[in-house]
Amino acid sequence: MHKLISRYIAETVRHLKAEERVEVEKELEANILDMLPENPSDNEVEQTLLSMGSPSSLAAKYRGSERHLIGPATYDTYVMVLKIVTLVVSLVTLVFTTLSFFLSPSGLSIFEMVAKALASIFSGASGAFLWVTITFALLDRYQVKTDIKEWNLPELRSLEEIPTKEIKKKDSIADLVGLSLFFLFLGFLYMNSDLLGIYTKDGEPIPLFIGTSLRPYLIGWMVTTTIAFFVAMLKMVRRRWTKPLLGFSATSDLLGVFYFFFIATRWQIYNPDALLFFNLAIEQWQIIIKAAAVVLLLLTLFSIGEDTYTTLKRTEPDESGKVPVR
């Protein structure tokens, strides 16, 4: 079967539910082959696929119904992300709430602890639902405004670029889980900054940070994490690298690195007693922080460079407009 037909079918069934894909794939392949002569030329294949409409519009016809808040093109991804984020948020909220009971005794009875834990889980899961739903609604609106393009020959040929420019689902899921955990950690640190400290057998815990100085910076860090989460969702929805997506991703990554460097060099947030515990002067601590920031920046630039190469170089059409053989 012609490679372009395979890509067209794969792109179409990607928008459908998993249990529908095999049957639709077989039906769609049979319909396309029936429309073509026995040994079709490349031009005949292209014209036939153009006449069928874009993969997203064809998939909508197979669905038979439209969803309004979250569009059909992103609904399956929305459900998957919602399940992942809700599960992660619920588990981490339960862990942090339980730790708070032991690290900061409040004199609550066991029933009050269970009730408080369940209330925290419900609150966290509700927040996750609201966060993910609003984000995907905005993504869907973004697609409506910018993603509806004329279904033409360049758009058809661009389907051939998907295999090498594809963003792996497991990478997107790992990003979403990691960012969710980090956001919850920041929230926990904002509410209980004194619990993050040095614990010894003898004596009171030594907090690593001065809570009143740290909290204002944590709000900004939550904002940058939310932006990164939005970009990770966008990657999962798009599933392949494009120049605009590369720009969003690189900007988000650099924003996170520079904000980390900004916070880490606010020397007034560190508890002097914690630095003395490690026998480190503030000057030595500054050198360690700056070195860590440089290493993190280099790793981020390397990752951005790899994504740039994937986006701009791999399967880039030559001057004739044909996609090179891989």
Score class of each variant (00 low, 15 high):
Met233Ala: 14
Ser6Val: 08
Thr97Lys: 15
Ala119His: 04
Asp273Glu: 08
Leu179Val: 15
Arg238Met: 12
Leu108Tyr: 13
His68Gln: 09
Arg326Asp: 10
Val89Thr: 13
Met113Cys: 11
Arg14Met: 01
Lys290Ala: 12
Thr226Asn: 03
Leu296Lys: 05
Gly321Asp: 03
Ile269Ala: 01
Ser57Cys: 03
Arg314Trp: 03
Ala291His: 01
Thr12Phe: 05
Val223Ile: 15
Ser180Gln: 03
Ala117Asp: 05
Met52Lys: 15
Glu11Pro: 01
Val257Phe: 05
Leu176Val: 12
Gly247Ala: 15
Leu181Pro: 06
Asp194Cys: 00
Leu103Met: 13
Gln286Gly: 09
Ser126Lys: 03
Leu153Asn: 11
Phe101Leu: 07
Ser104Cys: 09
Ser252Trp: 01
Leu33Ser: 08
Ala250Met: 07
Ile269Arg: 00
Arg314Leu: 15
Trp131Met: 14
Asp273Ser: 00
Lys243Ser: 10
Ser54Tyr: 10
Ala117Pro: 12
Phe260Glu: 08
Ala292Asn: 05
Ser158Met: 09
Val13Lys: 04
Ile167Asn: 09
Asp34Leu: 12
Phe183His: 02
Tyr142Leu: 14
Lys17Gln: 09
Leu103Trp: 09
Ala281Ser: 15
Tyr259Leu: 10
Ile84Glu: 06
Leu276Gln: 06
Thr226Ser: 10
Ser54Met: 07
Glu160Met: 11
Glu112Gln: 15
Glu160Pro: 07
Met191Trp: 05
Leu296Thr: 07
Arg239Ala: 10
Val89Glu: 03
Trp131Ser: 14
Phe278Trp: 02
Lys168Ser: 07
Val325Ser: 04
Asn43His: 15
Ala291Gly: 02
Leu108Ser: 10
Phe122Gln: 04
Arg326Ser: 11
Leu139Glu: 15
Leu276Glu: 05
Asp175Gln: 15
Ile32Gly: 05
Met222Gly: 15
Ile32His: 13
Phe129Ser: 08
Val323Phe: 04
Trp151Lys: 04
Leu99Cys: 11
Trp241Ile: 02
Thr97Phe: 07
Ser126Ile: 09
Leu138Ile: 14
Asp318Phe: 03
Pro40Asn: 12
Phe182Cys: 07
Val81Gln: 08
Gly71Cys: 04
Val177Pro: 11
Ser320His: 10
Leu234Ser: 08
Val237Trp: 03
Gly127Ile: 04
Ala125Asn: 03
Lys235Phe: 10
Lys170Ala: 11
Ile263Lys: 00
Thr93Pro: 02
Ala232Asp: 05
Pro37Gln: 06
Leu189Met: 14
Asp318Ala: 07
Lys168Pro: 01
Lys243Met: 04
Val92Lys: 08
Leu296Met: 06
His2Ile: 02
His15Asp: 04
Lys3Arg: 13
Ser252Met: 02
Leu176Asn: 14
Ile70Asp: 08
Ile287Tyr: 04
Leu254Met: 13
Gly256Met: 13
Asp171His: 10
Arg14Glu: 00
Leu138Gly: 05
Val95Arg: 03
Val22Met: 12
Trp151Gln: 03
Gly247Thr: 05
Phe248Asn: 07
Asp76Pro: 04
Ile289His: 00
Ser100Met: 11
Pro72Ala: 01
Arg239Thr: 03
Ala59Trp: 01
Lys313Asp: 08
Leu159Thr: 06
Val88Leu: 08
Leu16Glu: 02
Tyr199Thr: 01
Ser249Arg: 05
Val22Leu: 11
Leu298Ala: 14
Ile289Arg: 02
Val79Gly: 00
Pro272Trp: 02
His15Thr: 06
Leu208Val: 08
Ile173Tyr: 14
